[in-house]
Design a protein around this nucleic acid. Structure first.
Lengths: 136, 136
DNA sequence: GGTTGTTGGTCTCAAAAAGAGACTAGCACT
DNA sequence: AGTGCTAGTCTCTTTTTGAGACCAACAACC
């Protein structure tokens, strides 16, 4: 519940009294708690590429439940990263596309995704090493 | 459980048969599923600043439970982002510090954190707008 | 010498979140 | 008449998270 204003201190390196920070207004946590979901980045990545319909996204990410797809899309829409348009076809189809805000977010975010791809081997190696030292 | 190799297609824009992708080896999801936790980025941010002891981190992030602090730190250590050192003081103290791999990850990650700080207002505005149109 | 405090955890139980799958309505196609 | 498509919702179960008690060993205090 409480939100901790930590980034100011961390990013500029200056110390300050932790007790005086505004616990209810930490931008980083407020924003990150949403995009840090299991499916959020995946859907942002897809929609950064091009707009998709609900069913297309479901097929693109086969192991997401419809429930979570609906919910994650609505969360992303609420935060302004994507927009939803209903077409009066029969049956009605819904298209999701990225907004300017979403694209702006995806720019730095894609760098992290890139890092993940490039350093996957190192991470896997670290895991093996850790697990070996664990069972000792 | 299944892991979907999506990023290759997304990042270079080329289409390919979704069925042939290796569902068990998606770097982006494998790496991101860990750092996307609620507490991971927060702890990485703290440790990017300087090493901390267990109790210091707990005080720094008051609304984390000891259980989740222990678990998140161990996960981050397992993936090679941080390392843990026990000092033979009485009672024994434990210091956590970032590794080179962790610092390498935090470089692109900090850009996202920065974005969050800069665009917090836009996100909050989008939420208000969304909630207003909801109750209509 | 008994109480209290500190260290970094683990354990248990309750609450919240996520996954699985059935179900919906309206229409199109066969 | 039956089947399938659309984008969801509803319910139930399983997993994850949170809250808080508990632990051992020692130090400092009174």
């Amino acid at each position: 519940m409480a939100i901790y204003l930590m980034e100011k201190r961390m990013l500029n390196g200056q110390e300050c009294d932790t007790q005086t920070w505004d616990m209810g207004n930490c931008p980083v946590r407020d924003v990150l708690d949403r995009i840090a979901g299991k499916w959020s980045t995946l859907l942002l990545e897809a929609l950064a590429h091009k707009p998709y319909r609900f069913g297309e996204l479901r097929r693109l990410v086969p192991d997401i439940s419809q429930r979570m797809l609906t919910q994650t899309l609505r969360d992303l829409q609420r935060d302004g990263y994507i927009e939803r348009e209903v077409f009066p076809t029969k049956p009605p189809s819904v298209e999701y596309r990225m907004t300017d805000l979403g694209r702006s977010l995806f720019e730095p975010l894609s760098k992290v995704l890139l890092w993940a791809g490039e350093n996957h081997a190192s991470v896997k190696a670290a895991r093996v090493k850790f697990d070996e030292s664990e069972l000792a």
